Simulated assay, not measured.
Amino acid sequence: MDQDPQAARAPNRRIALLIDADNVSHTNIAAMLAELSKYGTANIRRAYGDWGADGLKGWRGKLHEFAIRPIQQFSYSAGKNATDIALVIDAMELLYTQKPDAFCIASSDADFTPLVMQLKANGHDVYGFGERKTPAPFVNACTTFLYLDSLEVAAPAGTPKPPKAAKKSDDKPAKLPIAQDAKLIEVLRGAVEAAMYDDGWASMSAAGSTAKRQAPIDPRNYGVKNFPALFEATGVFDIVKADNGQTYVADKRNKDRTDKPAI
């Protein structure tokens, strides 16, 4: 989640953080809260699960440490996940009662996609955290989505890195090289076109913000730190830093652009 204009008003924005503890590791909570602090204060923090289950033992010590309210949800039927329903009900209740400025859904479950779409339809930003296996519909529905393995670069200094879990061949699909990611390049090209001046150049900050409005793009999900590095890695843009300190980007296909931005 790269910094954007809304971060300027971040201290006054109230965020409801709703965690599907069955699908998110407790080792990520410090980094998630640090990331959300760019956009506001997560003053509503709830984690959902069956807290008597062995699989959530690691979470129990984190609840008090990070002031997270545990929401107990029993599994009423074998093989059925009732946690999802409890989280959705709470989100809708919060929408009309506590009225937070934004929501954050931490899960890798695509079943939350309709919830995200409903919250956005009501005018709220929805930030998402999840694993690489998170289905595309949920990722694309969020205002911004950040893969949990990308949070290592965002964690505060001194935060211990979580132990790496054993890799499963079907859990984490191979990343497409940036220069071959046609969908990403299409979004970035559209962002430059929308943000460019008459000379064919767009400021990097405007192009990055425009790209994020089109799709839940965070450069760290692609293994780079920021939008300048992301645009450069595609190999299809020219990037220059002007004397005024601003960075500008232009599509190499645009033959009508000037050689340099007219500042």
Rank of each mutant, 00 (worst) to 15 (best):
F145C: 09
A206G: 00
P162H: 07
A91T: 06
R213W: 00
D243A: 14
T144C: 11
P261G: 03
I239V: 02
E186W: 00
V24H: 07
F227P: 00
A8P: 02
H64D: 13
I19M: 11
D259E: 15
I71N: 12
V139F: 03
T234A: 09
I105P: 06
S107T: 15
A7P: 03
F66K: 03
A21P: 01
F138V: 05
Y222G: 00
I105E: 08
A7Q: 07
I29H: 01
F145I: 08
A110D: 04
L94S: 08
S25R: 13
K161T: 06
G123F: 12
Q118S: 10
D238G: 05
S205G: 06
E186C: 08
D149E: 13
N254V: 04
G61P: 01
D170M: 14
G61R: 10
D84F: 05
A21K: 04
P100E: 12
R257T: 15
S108W: 10
L18N: 06
A166R: 13
D111A: 12
K255S: 13
V224D: 07
A206D: 14
N81Q: 07
K172R: 11
G61W: 10
H64C: 00
E152A: 12
D251I: 08
M196H: 12
V187D: 10
M1K: 02
G208L: 06
N254P: 06
D170E: 14
T258K: 15
P5S: 12
A174W: 09
M204V: 07
A86T: 01
P162C: 04
A42F: 10
N43T: 14
M92W: 10
F129T: 01
V139D: 02
A16F: 10
G58R: 01
T143W: 07
K38Y: 10
R132N: 11
P261N: 04
A195Q: 00
W59S: 02
A155W: 04
